[in-house]
């Protein structure tokens, strides 16, 4: 087991390194000149060159990559030879000259709304998805099952932005049940926080719950047909215990996989939901940075997001063993 963990961690690190390299190569193709953006009006070629140097964009891609990796561990000083050097402390994910801020700080600032959004939606969709899925499985073929499956179909057929816009139109504009979403920290104004987050939570939860309803239902149907469930029932165990202790546990594995990966994906920012509900999260930072060609920030967010997903992959795999004793890690 521990050998497996070590091997997985090593391959994860290799994957991360590879990923940063690919990201660097991909973004080095971008046309917008990041130096140009910091140069402004009255920009002369010399100033442009100086800025490019300051930002480190005059180096070959591989060397930029090396500087970046070095910065992660020992920090980085931009424009060391100029009158106003910029220090970026380790771990340095880069520095946005456009925003005059370390990328790591920017990402940290934007992480809370994204985390709240992801966690809130996560619990909602797991609760709704799993319970409705089990319910449908137990009522297999009856109208309850069909209704749940219908809801599920509707859920995953609705594009998120259409659902979000409809929510704003009906709940906010027409019925005026909630004010226009305007994010504040829950510690600053909990009421406004909940008023703002309620719709995005529900919208995201509907989209994801749809899939979990199906997944849970299918898993349950499969497991409920297995011999050991029949044995458990034959032993006279109450149905509740059969479902919770035996069926659900055995059927949980793919649900955990999907949940882990989905949560990790959401932590990287739900671009569309954030932009519709104007949440100041990672997703909206990403879109703004794309619009501004703020390369260091885009690279930073891509890496952070990808890291979430890769780490989640590892955790999910390790969790398998804990949940399902049948899985052996080799």
């Amino acid at each position: 087991m521990s050998a497996y963990v070590v091997r997985r961690v090593i391959s994860m690190i290799i994957l991360l390194l590879l990923l940063t390299l690919v990201v660097f190569i991909l973004f080095s193709l971008l046309p917008a000149d990041p130096a140009r953006l910091t140069c402004g009006k009255g920009c002369t070629p010399e100033v442009l060159e100086a800025n490019r140097h300051k930002l480190g964009f005059d180096l070959p891609v591989i060397q930029q990559y090396w500087e970046f990796m070095k910065g992660l561990f020992v920090g980085r000083i931009y424009a060391a030879d100029s009158p106003s050097p910029v220090v970026c402390n380790a771990p340095c994910l880069g520095y946005s000259f456009k925003r005059g801020e370390e990328v790591l700080v920017l990402i940290k600032d934007r992480l809370p709304p994204t985390i709240w959004l992801a966690l809130g939606a996560f619990f909602l969709w797991l609760a709704a998805g799993i319970s409705l899925g089990i319910y449908a499985a137990l009522r297999r073929g009856r109208w309850q099952d069909k209704t749940v499956m219908g809801i599920s179909l509707a859920g995953y057929s609705l594009p998120s932005f259409f659902l979000g816009l409809m929510a704003i139109f009906f709940i906010v504009i027409r019925l005026q049940l909630l004010p226009y979403p305007s994010y504040v920290s829950p510690f600053e104004n909990p009421i406004q926080f909940f008023q703002t987050m309620l719709l995005p939570w529900i919208v995201l939860a509907i989209l994801y719950a749809a899939f979990y309803m199906r997944l849970t239902r299918n898993q349950m149907l499969e497991v409920l047909g297995d011999d050991y469930i029949r044995t458990a029932r034959a032993k006279g165990l109450p149905e509740r215990v059969v479902i919770r202790k035996h069926a659900l546990r055995a059927g949980l594995t793919p649900i955990v996989t999907a949940a882990g990966l989905d949560l990790a994906g959401l932590l990287g920012g739900a671009i569309i939901t954030e932009s519709i509900f104007s949440l100041p999260g990672l997703g909206s930072l990403a879109v703004n940075s794309v619009n501004d060609a703020d390369l260091p920030v885009i690279v930073g967010i891509t890496l952070v997001t990808a890291t979430f997903i890769i780490v989640a992959n590892l955790i999910v795999d390790l969790l398998y063993a804990v949940i399902d004793p049948r899985v052996r890690l080799v």
């Binding site: 917008a32 140009r36 619009n291």
Partner: peptide
């Protein structure tokens, strides 16, 4: 052109 990059692009005679 992305608004944030607009003048960076159109002030470049090449672009």
């Amino acid at each position: 052109i992305e608004p944030g990059q607009y003048y960076g692009v159109v002030f470049d005679p090449e672009k």
